[in-house]
Design a binder for these strands. Structure first.
Length: 273
DNA sequence: CAGGTCTCCTGCTAGC
DNA sequence: TGCTAGCAGGAGACCT
C-alpha cells in the first residue's frame, strides 16, 4: 500500500523515464478510474500534452502537463508499468498512455481503487489535492499547528494520523511506526496529547519517512516502485506486521488490535496500555 | 463540525 | 487436501 515514501519513489522513477515526453493518446479501459469526469473530454484534452514535470502532494502524483495536471492516487495496489505500444493488454491494466508513439505507459490496479483526475491548472483549487494538509517537512508543521487541529479530535491518535487534511502522506504502516518511536499509545485521544508528544510525532514522522524514502519504500505485499523493484524498508519496521514478535527495544510481544477499523500494531510496554 | 458506517474491489487466508 | 466466507484497506459519500 503506497504511502508517501513509496509514492515519492515511484515519482522519481517515472520522472526519470518520462520527463519531456508527450502523451499522444490515452486508452481508458475502466471509466471509474476517472470518476465524475467526462471520459471523452479527458481523452481529447490529454492528447499531445507534454509531461513537463512530475510532483508529489501527500500520496498523490501530480503530472505537470502543458494546460492540465494529471493527478493520480494509487490507493492500495496501483502501479505503473512500461510496455511496447502494440503489446497485448494484460489483466488489471486499466489505463494505457501512448508516450511519443514509442512507450506504452500502463496503469495497473488489481483492486481498481486508484483514481485519476485531469484538471485544468487554474482549477487546482477545487481538486482533491486542495484539501490536503501540510507535508511532513513543511515549516508550518509545529506543535501549535497540531494542537489546534487536534483540539476537538476525540479519536485515537492512530486514526487521526491517517487524516490527510492535517498531515498528508502518512498511511497505516508509518502511523504505527511513528507512534512507536514517539512512545505514544495508539489509543490515546488526539486532543489529550501534550506539547512534547506532538513535537515527538512531528520529529518522528520526518525521521520515519526520510528513512523509508532512503530505502525506496516498504514492500509488504505487493508494492514495487517499478516493475520488479521492491523497497527495503520492511526490514526497518519496529512494530507493523510484527504481531507476537518481540519488541526490538524491550522484547515484549508486539500486539495487534483494530483501531478505527485499521489493523494497528504496538508495543504495550514501550507505548503503555 | 465531529464521528460512525458503508462502499468500492479482488487476492489471500483462516477455518472447516 | 480443497473449498469458501470473510477479511484487508484509503478515502469519499452519506447519515446522525
Amino acid at each position: 500500500m503506497p504511502e508517501l515514501p513509496e509514492v515519492e519513489t515511484v515519482r522519481r522513477a517515472l520522472l526519470k523515464k518520462l520527463k519531456g515526453k508527450q502523451i499522444k493518446e490515452i486508452t481508458i479501459l475502466h471509466n471509474n478510474v476517472f470518476e465524475k469526469q467526462d471520459i471523452e473530454k479527458v481523452k481529447q484534452n490529454i492528447k499531445n500534452q507534454t509531461i513537463n514535470d512530475i510532483l508529489r502532494r501527500g500520496k498523490w502524483l501530480e503530472f505537470v502537463l502543458d494546460d492540465y495536471y494529471l493527478l493520480s492516487h494509487l490507493r492500495m495496489e496501483g502501479k505503473y508499468v512500461y510496455r511496447n505500444i502494440n503489446d497485448p493488454i494484460e489483466r488489471h491494466q486499466l489505463v494505457l498512455f501512448n508516450i511519443d508513439n514509442d512507450i506504452s505507459l500502463r496503469y495497473r490496479d488489481v483492486r481498481k481503487f486508484g483514481k485519476m483526475y485531469l484538471i485544468k491548472k487554474e482549477d487546482v483549487g477545487n481538486s482533491p489535492i486542495s484539501k490536503l494538509g501540510l507535508e511532513p517537512w513543511d515549516d508550518n508543521l509545529d506543535s501549535s499547528y497540531l494542537k489546534e487541529k487536534y483540539k476537538r479530535k476525540n479519536l485515537p491518535i492512530k486514526t487521526v494520523l491517517l487524516d490527510q487534511s492535517i498531515i498528508t502522506g502518512i498511511g497505516n504502516i508509518y502511523a504505527d511506526e511513528i507512534l512507536f518511536l514517539s512512545k505514544i499509545n495508539p489509543h490515546k485521544k488526539a486532543k489529550d496529547l501534550e506539547t512534547k508528544e506532538l513535537q515527538s510525532i512531528i520529529d518522528n514522522t520526518k525521521q520515519v519517512l526520510d528513512k523509508a524514502i532512503d530505502e525506496k519504500g516498504t514492500t509488504i505485499r505487493s508494492y514495487t516502485s517499478e516493475e520488479g523493484v521492491k523497497g527495503n524498508n520492511q526490514n526497518n519496521l519496529y512494530v507493523h506486521m510484527r504481531e507476537k514478535e518481540p519488541c526490538k527495544l524491550c522484547k515484549e510481544a508486539i500486539v495487534k488490535e483494530k483501531i478505527g477499523g485499521r489493523g494497528s500494531y504496538y508495543c504495550p510496554n514501550c507505548q503503555g496500555h
